[in-house]
Every structure is written in C-alpha cells, then in structure tokens.
Design a protein around this nucleic acid. Structure first.
Length: 350
RNA sequence: ACUGGAGUUUACGAAU
C-alpha cells in the first residue's frame, strides 16, 4: 500500500492523473484495501488537479467501504473545497468533524482562513482565528502569515503590521514565507529599497532568500525599467547559491515582451534553452500572449498546436486567451475549429 | 508515507 501511494503521489505531481487512477484500480484488484492515507493521496491529487467531482465521489466511496475519514482526510477535503471557491461548504464540513471523532486543528483553521482571505472576507477570517482556542487549537506562524498576506493584498497595511506585532507578542517567529510575503508586498508598493533591505535583514536572521523573493523583485525592477539592477540582482543571487531558473527567466521575459517586442524575447528564449532551462507553461503563455498582442495569431496557434501534440496542452486560461483573440478578430471559423480540436484532445472548457 | 501560508504569465473595466 505504501509503494502504491508513493507512486500515485508522484504521478499526480507530474499531472499524470489517468496513470494514477489506473494504479488506484490496480491496487484494488490486487486485493490491497486502501486505508486513510492512500485515500488521502488520491483525494489530494484529484483536488489539486481540478478533478473535484471525482474527489467527492471518492469521499462517498470511503464511507461505503467503511473507512472513516481522519483529521488529515478532512483537512484535505476542506482544502479542496476552499481552493474551488466553496468556503461555506468547507466551514460546514469543519463543524461536522467532531461527529467522526476528529476535531479541527491549526491546519483546518488555517486552510479555511486562507479561503476566506482569498475571497476578501478578512473580518470573518480574523473572527475565525479567534475561535481556534475553543477547539483546543491555536494560531501558528502559518496562520498569521496567511492573514498577513490577505491584508497586504487588500492594501490594508496597518492591520497587516499589527498582525506582525501580534505574532511576535505570542512568541511566534516569522519564517521565510512570512518574510517573503512582506517583501513582495513592499515591492508591490514600489518601495524597492526597503524590500532589498528587508531581504538583507532576513538573511541576517539565517533565512536564505529564495525564488519567491527573486522573481518578485525582478518584476519590480523591470517595471521601473531598471534592467541593470535586475541583472545585478541575478548575479548576486547566483553568487549566494541561488541560480536563476525558468521562473526567473519568465519574469525577465515578460518585461521584454511588453517593453521591447518579441524579437528580443525570442533571442532570450533561445539563450534560455541553450542554458538548459526548459520553458514551462508560463513561458509559453507569456510568449503566446505577446504574439497575440502583435497580431501574430498564426504563430500563437502554432505553438498551441505543437504543445498539444506533445501532450502538453496549455491550461484553460491560455486556451481562453487564444479563443478570445480569435473572436475579437472575427475569425469565427477558426475559433470553432479550435474548440473542436480542444474537445477532441479531451480538454474541458470552463 | 498523506493535509494548511509566499513568487514569474493570462481576463475584464476605467482613463488617455
């Protein structure tokens, strides 16, 4: 069972959902009855890959097979619901946990708090944090960081910093994600100098900056047209052992597309591939978007087709981008053809 | 062995 679970987890991570499902069937037919943790791997994988209905079916199956969900299962389901915009359902489920001998823990609460924050329901989120103690739980660094991110994204700076204070009053230390959250938000405000200073402070506390910091700061530099500074930062980061990756390239690339046109981008893309970086979904999305903006619809469609034929069909969002352009240009026949092709390739429209 | 928080691309609207 452990081997199967590990394998399925790996398959889900690579987006190979059908393969994982196959393995799940095989496991069953080999007389290996899945327990909570195997169900959890499946649930998590299905939710992560947007296969909500199948996940919910699996939950029913757990019940009919007499596998009572444990706290981790509940948390996984609650997270799945939240990530699909069903926060209210998630809250209802949390209230039911006690009927099954589990009680909500910090993970449960933080998951729902995150869902509420992402919906902009910050007051409700704060109130929920206040209720954690009733369940014998208490907020941790992750809970606070979730809220800090929520308030930052809504531009509610003072409340965000009072959360930081509240956190340290409780003896909770900020971790690298907390720092990154704040650094990103300071960048967003265009206060780049402060962001860089905070990053140094973070290093001073023994945390290593990571790509979440790097890409955001790069983006901010580019926005201000400070390309040399961006390149300098890339060098500095590489020197402390954080070499650029595909996401870093993407961040630079976006600016190139917008400010300097596609030719430079294509040069950079070539350079990147020569350096051994694989373009990813974001790379292609950026590139296709830029092509569409320059009316190079054929080229964008070409990339789409190549990716699809390689079994790496772009996400719904990217496909919608193309469709929108086709409609805008009045190319209805091409659009219809495109949709047919999508369906034939098993892509589900949203 | 399985669950929660941060980063790079994409819509729309407004203004010009």
């Amino acid at each position: 069972e452990r081997t199967y679970s590990t394998l399925m987890q790996g398959l889900f991570k690579q987006g190979r959902i059908e393969d994982a499902l196959e393995l799940w069937k095989e496991m069953d037919s080999n007389g290996c009855a899945p327990r909570n943790f195997s169900y959890n791997v499946m649930l998590h994988g299905l939710f992560q890959n947007g296969r909500m209905e199948e996940a919910m079916k699996l939950v029913e199956e757990m019940f009919t097979k007499g596998v009572s969900p444990n706290a981790v299962n509940f948390n996984t389901i609650i997270n799945g619901l939240c990530k699909h915009g069903k926060t209210e359902e998630a809250i209802r489920l949390m209230k039911k946990m006690s009927e099954y001998g589990s009680s909500p823990d910090a993970v449960t609460f933080t998951t729902i708090i995150d869902g509420l924050c992402k919906e902009g329901r910050l007051e409700v989120a704060i109130r929920l944090m206040g209720k954690m103690s009733e369940c014998g739980s208490k907020p941790d660094t992750v809970t606070f960081t979730t809220l800090i991110d929520g308030f930052c994204k809504e531009g509610r700076l003072e409340e965000a910093s009072s959360l930081v204070e509240n956190m340290s009053r409780r003896g909770l230390r900020p971790d690298v994600v907390t720092f990154t959250t704040i650094i990103n938000w300071i960048c967003e405000q265009g206060r780049l100098g402060e962001a860089l200073r905070l990053m140094e402070e973070m290093c001073g506390k023994g945390f290593r900056p990571n790509h979440c910091d790097l890409e955001y700061i790069i983006k901010a530099f580019c926005k201000e047209g400070r390309l040399e500074d961006a390149n300098k930062l890339l060098e500095d980061m590489a020197n402390i052992g954080i070499p650029p990756n595909t996401a870093t390239f993407n961040a630079m690339n976006n600016d190139l597309c917008k400010a300097r046109g596609l030719q430079k981008t294509e040069e950079l893309l070539e350079k990147m591939m020569k350096a051994g970086f694989e373009p990813d979904a974001v790379t292609y999305c950026t590139l296709m978007d830029a092509m569409l903006k320059e009316q190079r619809v054929e080229d964008a469609l070409g990339i789409h087709n190549v990716l699809t034929s390689k079994g790496r069909a772009p996400a719904v969002h990217t496909r919608n981008m193309l469709l929108r352009k086709l409609f805008k240009n009045g190319e209805l026949n091409v659009a219809v053809e495109f949709i047919d092709g999508m369906l034939a390739n098993g892509c589900i429209p949203d």
